[in-house]
């Protein structure tokens, strides 16, 4: 088992109170597994990814544990987490296009970053990895501004995985790309896993169609909580949670590319996470809701490796 997340709660401190962006999420990530993480904007995908690597100043670890290869991660101890960052757990951020220092040549930035982590650069290996994502070694001599968006994205992918992390979090790496670039990036990510450069991966997206191309299993989140998690095949063909069903139902055919539509095709909007209502958070939009849904549905394993949080799923 690479990664075990147990009842993780992470809140944002704001002037109006705490935003409960991650409100009790638990799941496992096996060795070699690519987990697709889907859900509409604001459901807490980025928050989950950030929680696993670095809480920013506004985030508070409000409860739960994360275990990586047997060690419990010291999430709220910024200093102690450093030992895990980059080496064990790494991130391709949602903002990859602007993740590189604009005034440093990329090669030099990589050298300085690695030196600061006490690692020296193996130039041959670096070139091989660039080739793996389709980049020429001469990008190392360029400034970020001289690269296209897709190239920057891939450069960041290479940098983030240089130390062969156990877990890579790829946050919306395909959102800003056109279709052909999306395929290339997804292919490159799978290549990294297949070659063992990255043990396991969390692939964050709001594009379910794309996720099913790359992920072994898919986890759907709703308003800071887990809605459903299952192997890709199962989740896309026999979803149990009404929310997942609506997501899948809005796809013309599973795996079809459907721009932006999939997760916005459902009427209504998720509840505020500042003071979320009790009970099932999907209640307002759920066609199956009844009086029992005023109570919060527990996450239940309805079949092996298939968990759902819905009273009507069992």
């Amino acid at each position: 088992m690479t990664l075990t997340v147990n009842d993780l709660r992470v809140h944002y401190r704001t002037l109006r109170g705490e935003v409960r962006a991650l409100d009790g999420v638990g799941f496992d990530l096996a060795d070699g597994e690519i987990l697709g993480l889907a859900g509409e904007s604001g459901c807490g995908k980025t928050t989950l990814g950030k929680s696993l690597i670095r809480l920013d100043g506004r985030m508070r670890h409000a409860g739960g544990t994360v275990t990586l290869d047997g060690d419990e991660l010291p999430l709220s101890d910024d200093r102690a987490m450093n030992a895990y960052r980059f080496h064990k757990i790494s991130l391709v951020p949602q903002y990859s296009m602007s993740a590189l220092n604009p005034t440093r040549r990329i090669g030099r930035m990589i050298r300085e970053l690695l030196a600061s982590r006490g690692v020296s650069v193996d130039t041959g290996e670096l070139h091989r990895r660039l080739a793996l994502v389709g980049l020429d070694p001469d990008v190392l001599e360029r400034y970020p501004i001289e690269l296209s968006g897709g190239m920057k994205q891939r450069a960041v992918m290479v940098i983030s995985t240089l130390l062969d992390p156990s877990v890579l979090i790829a946050d919306e790496v395909t959102s800003a790309l056109d279709v052909s670039n999306q395929q290339a990036v997804v292919g490159a990510l799978r290549g990294l896993r297949d070659k063992g450069l990255v043990t396991s991966m969390i692939f964050v997206t709001h594009d379910l169609g794309l996720t099913s191309h790359i992920a072994d299993s898919i986890m759907v989140m709703y308003a800071g909580k887990l809605a459903e998690k299952a192997p890709t095949k199962v989740l896309t063909t026999e979803p149990r949670h009404p929310y997942t069903k609506m997501l899948i139902g809005s796809l013309p055919q599973v795996g079809a590319r459907y721009k932006d539509k999939p997760l916005s095709g459902i009427e209504g909007s998720p509840p505020s996470l500042l003071n979320p209502p009790a009970g099932c958070r999907f209640r307002d939009r759920c066609p199956l809701a009844d009086s029992r849904c005023a109570e919060e549905p527990p996450v239940v394993e309805v079949a092996p490796r298939h968990s759902v949080a819905c009273w009507k799923a069992a």
Partner: peptide, 24 residues
């Protein structure tokens, strides 16, 4: 800025992040 967050996420020491920030 984003490049500072990225470096911090990869565990780069404050020294490096500050150096870049100062320079920019």
């Amino acid at each position: 800025s984003d490049y500072s967050s990225y470096l911090a996420a990869l565990g780069a020491p404050q020294r490096l992040i500050r150096r870049y920030a100062f320079r920019n």
